[in-house]
Design a protein around this nucleic acid. Structure first.
Lengths: 185, 185
DNA sequence: TTCACCTATATCGCTTCGACATATATCAAA
DNA sequence: TTTGATATATGTCGAAGCGATATAGGTGAA
């Protein structure tokens, strides 16, 4: 599955600019299982437009560059449907955190502790993000499903780390690392 | 973190050829959280050799091309240590399965069912692979940690899907899709 | 004996990432 | 009050990496 199909998917929910698509990928309900950069989104949108799978409309803005709002066409919906019918590739999970943990002997105890705390913060942040997506309600069947799956998986990781930490440092009273979990929204 | 550091990490455990590194990535304890293709491994090894971070030794084989066995050097260990000290990037999780689930209305019920069964098979396979890594024992502190984390996360996903399936199809008696979970090893 | 799969290295086109460039608006802190 | 950070918005470009393919003989099952 490529970035073109990804854009079509998001546009099938609502029309949007490239910038808004990127934001949706970073902060929306997609955020925990897809990714794409500007360097692939903008070229993809141009391509889709050239293939008449989307339409564009320039929205004037004061000061900023014109916002180019894209909308999916009927041909675009058909292409999306075809893209989704392909057998899905296996999940890809890359974790530098786990890689580093595997080589603990190359790190100091502090470095390991810091890495674990950072990972816990990251997981909490993602969970909070999904929680806020839930609150904004009106979720489709598909939305509910992926949220449930995401919560299950992220919580399991967090729980494992919490157990590991409490097991390793019962009551050491050492300087605690404060992790800011920014409120999303 | 790039493929060079990845190769150094694997070579810090034992010397290996490019082919063996790829196998380790696909089937070893790394398999559920890292990935790399031949297209990046072979060039990476050449680069590492040019930088004297690894040594090469050609092992003759009957029939096949010579096996080029790489071993990490002291400079290589230092480079690995430096690579690991960098703050780890956030986990990257890409799931075409979840993307497709989000757009269920574009698919038939059969397609959705099939996708779910496939996902469950994939998860079971990964769990089995980790189980077999456990059996082969002699695991380091780091190994145990990442296995525990992996099992926690994969099991959580599987459990969620199992609940979803039993909820959706209590006793329909329809043609069941048989999923072959190949025994690893 | 055919066919699929395994060992083994390597390249190549294409996709995608990540960092940067450009331009303006807003808001908080020094 | 000026500086700096953050947000909106589009886009490019070099580098990294993927996935498929080429090559070539060995192994084992149908």
């Amino acid at each position: 599955m490529n970035v073109r199909t990804l854009c079509l998917g998001i546009l099938s929910f609502q029309e949007a600019s490239g910038y808004e698509i990127k934001k949706e990928i970073e902060e929306g309900q997609f955020s925990h299982f897809i990714d794409a950069s500007y360097g692939s989104i903008y070229p993809a949108l141009n391509q889709l437009h050239a293939e008449a799978l989307v339409t564009v409309r320039a929205e004037e803005q004061s000061g900023r560059p014109d916002k180019k709002v894209y909308a999916i066409t009927e041909a675009g919906r058909k292409a999306l449907s075809e893209g989704l019918s392909q057998v899905a590739a296996k999940d890809k999970f890359k974790s530098e955190f786990l890689f580093a943990m595997l080589f603990q002997e190359f790190l100091t105890e502090d470095q390991v502790g810091l890495a674990v705390e950072k990972q816990m913060g990251d997981l909490k942040q993602k969970l909070a993000r999904m929680e806020s997506c839930r609150v904004h309600g009106a979720l489709s069947r598909g939305s509910n499903f992926i949220m449930g799956y995401g919560e299950a998986v992220l919580s399991a990781g967090l729980k494992f780390l919490e157990q590991h930490v409490s097991q390793k440092r019962p009551n050491k009273g050492e300087a605690t690392v404060s992790i800011k979990v920014e409120a999303v929204e």
